[in-house]
Nucleic acid binder design. Structure first.
Lengths: 207, 207
DNA sequence: GCTACCTTGTGAAGGAATTCACAAGCATCC
DNA sequence: GGATGCTTGTGAATTCCTTCACAAGGTAGC
């Protein structure tokens, strides 16, 4: 398959969110223009994004909301349940573990991991904090596919190496450090300090 | 000034992080190649990124670590202290409030805001949770420049409108919704569910 | 069935970001 | 001081992404 740009996938996520709102509202069809308006893009962009995956609309009418939503869920791989482990049960890790948005979208959190004896054994709204030393065996036994890294920067790379070795192919990293992984492992990073620096730049370099 | 791409600013942040490590390690100079290796990019990219802002290196030698670090801090507007309010003291908001990475980089958190009487008055590691109704007057009196939005999706746009009206020109949004703001207000969004969907896509559409 | 009107899907054009490739500058060594 | 080796800064080339513009296909009204 032709390589799909990251920005395209992002937008598909956004479109899906709107479609789900429309589904709830009982709206039957929607045009690329309406999706564009809400998503802050152009109708041509919406149609181009979709065109990489097929033809989902009806000329003159637009897109069937439930059909397009189903198609996007399929494309994004959201038809199934993904098994996720959260590594690091500090402030960020604990907040993520309890974040409801994940489960709502089919991401099933198996457990959180930490090496602080104070934290091990705790229960975070039904999710257990386990001993970090069990990480590899649990990942393998429970077939975790996605890992969320919320450990201190200093140990992020080492922890990544561990989970990659255990077979995880997708990682969401919250540590403010640049990670290196084999090409068949997808790593996405969320770096809040960096985003703030982007704001600082914008505020500083205004015309 | 020529418009600088978002991706460039992001990379400058990354370079700065490495330079600060080098500073601590007492390293005097660094080449574009070394910065590229660590940052997962190319040396040409590093030089091009820097070239938008001036010439910072010495041919044959590389860049002086402290000089380049200072230049990047200047470019990114990190020479000063930014005043930040956090709106929403739920799981995410509370975790952000207590996150040390912000203060370390010159982002001073003035307060957190919530409308839950249970939360108002609490102390989050030295930062007060205040009544949401005080938001506008506090922003104006205390000259907050940056707002971090960690409120439920349903009220995100309304809250954004409030802080924009109060004069805030930079917003970091954690609500999973698409926000609309005037052109002179910079809004950056961090959407964890969306990032996870990107991973789901990657796992699903592997060759 | 015919007309008027919409909206999609998509090649082509345009624009933006990245990579290439090399002249120019500086340090070091002999 | 000249030769050697290294690294920057930057136009040019390339690749990637977005926008344009329009033919094709569909609906609705009469």
């Amino acid at each position: 398959m032709k390589r799909i740009a990251d920005s395209t996938v992002r937008r598909l996520s956004i479109y899906l969110r709107f479609l789900e709102e429309f589904e709830e509202g009982g709206l039957a069809t929607v045009s690329s223009q309406e999706l564009a308006r809400r998503g802050g893009t152009t109708s041509a962009q919406v149609r181009k994004d979709l065109s990489f995956f097929g033809s989902f609309g009806k000329r003159g009418l637009g897109y069937s909301v439930p059909e397009l939503a189903a198609a996007l869920r399929e494309i994004l791989g959201l038809g199934r349940e993904w098994r996720v482990v959260i590594i690091g049960a500090g402030k960020i890790g604990a907040a993520l573990t309890q974040y409801r948005g994940f489960r709502q979208r089919g991401f099933h959190i198996l457990a959180a991991y930490d090496d602080d004896p104070e934290k091990i054994g705790r229960d975070l709204e039904g999710i257990e904090v386990r001993d970090m030393s069990r990480l590899e065996q649990d990942v393998e036994n429970e077939h975790a596919q996605i890992a969320v890294l919320a450990v201190p920067s200093e140990v992020a790379q080492h922890t990544l190496d561990r989970i990659v070795k255990a077979g995880v192919k997708a990682v969401l990293n919250f540590a403010p450090s640049q990670l290196h992984a084999p090409a068949d492992v997808t790593v996405k990073s969320v770096n809040m300090a960096m985003e703030l620096e982007g704001l600082s730049f914008a505020l500083t370099n205004r015309d």
